[in-house]
Simulated assay, not measured.
Amino acid sequence: MKDGDIDYSKYERHELEEALERINADLYPRNHANLRSAYQALVGKQPPPPNVPRLRPEPAQFEDEPPPVPKYDEHGRYVPNHIPAGERLSLVALSLLLLTYGSYGVWTNDLYLPARRGGIHLNDSSAWAMLGAFACAFLCMLVLVADHYDRRNNELNYWRASRVVGGLGWSCFVLSLILWIFQRFHQ
């Protein structure tokens, strides 16, 4: 059985209330929306908020960033993500600035990374690896903006792409520091 397959129109009030207390809205958003609509149609008012704690933990509870769950309105229609215009603009500007700074550092063969106690200058292969990390950060920020403009139900695909590109970026970052250490001590 898939999410959204249950027909709640034939349920009685006590059955609907019991289902409302037990349903996991994050795992079954369409069934939850259908259940709320059936309750409102039968009783004539919004259903009461759930007062029973979840009987089982959510599957993504122990991850650092849980995958997104699609949102649906009370009629079961998909609601796309919305990112405010100011946030979108700042993400695009920051990503372009980061990529430009990294490109300039590679072009001059001196990519400076500031730190609390001076910072480091990356040259040659370590600068190129850091540019790869900057490019991945650029792509991660653009994936967030692209998700806003895409009206289809595919947040999970954008989340996966962001995780893969982010992991690649962190790998490039670590590789850059390893190359810098290797270059510094083997000259």
Rank of each mutant, 00 (worst) to 15 (best):
Asn154Cys: 10
Phe134Trp: 15
Met130Arg: 00
Arg36Asp: 03
Arg30Trp: 02
Asp5Ile: 01
Gly76Pro: 13
Asp64Trp: 12
Leu111Ile: 08
Glu65Ile: 14
Asp147Pro: 00
Ser90Pro: 00
Glu155Gly: 10
Leu89Pro: 02
Val145Tyr: 15
Ser125Met: 03
Leu111Val: 09
Arg36Val: 13
Ala127Phe: 05
Ile83Thr: 11
Cys172Glu: 02
Leu156Met: 08
Lys45Phe: 03
Ser9Phe: 05
Glu87Ile: 03
Asp150Phe: 14
Pro59Gly: 01
His82Ala: 06
Leu20Asn: 05
Tyr104Val: 10
Leu55Ser: 14
Ala137Asn: 13
Tyr158Gly: 00
Glu63Pro: 01
Asn24Val: 02
His186Glu: 11
Pro47Arg: 02
Pro114His: 13
Pro80Gln: 01
Ala38Leu: 03
Ser95Ala: 12
His121Gln: 13
His121Phe: 04
Ser9Asp: 07
Gly44Thr: 04
Arg117Ala: 05
His14Asn: 05
Tyr8Leu: 02
Leu142Ser: 00
Leu16Cys: 02
Pro84Phe: 04
Gly166Met: 09
Ser162Thr: 12
Ala41Gly: 02
Thr100Leu: 15
Gly132Glu: 07
Ala85Met: 07
Gly118Pro: 02
Arg117Trp: 06
Leu168Lys: 07
Ala60Pro: 09
Leu122Cys: 06
Arg184Thr: 06
Arg117Met: 13
Arg117Val: 10
Glu15His: 15
Arg88Tyr: 05
Ile178Met: 07
Arg160His: 09
Ile178Arg: 00
Leu111Gln: 07
Pro47Val: 05
Pro49Trp: 08
Pro48Thr: 03
Leu139Val: 06
Pro29Tyr: 01
Leu55Gln: 15
Tyr101Val: 09
Leu139Ile: 14
Met141Asn: 14
Asp110Gln: 15
Ile178Glu: 06
Asp124Gly: 11
Ser95Met: 12
Asp3Phe: 03
Arg151Thr: 09
Phe173Arg: 00
Pro66Asn: 01
Lys10Glu: 04
Trp180Leu: 05
Ser9Thr: 15
Ser9Lys: 06
Tyr158Glu: 05
Tyr39Leu: 02
Thr108Gln: 15
Pro47Ile: 08
Met130Val: 05
Leu122Gly: 00
Asp7Ile: 12
Arg88Glu: 04
Asn154Asp: 09
Asp26Pro: 01
Arg160Trp: 12
Ile181His: 02
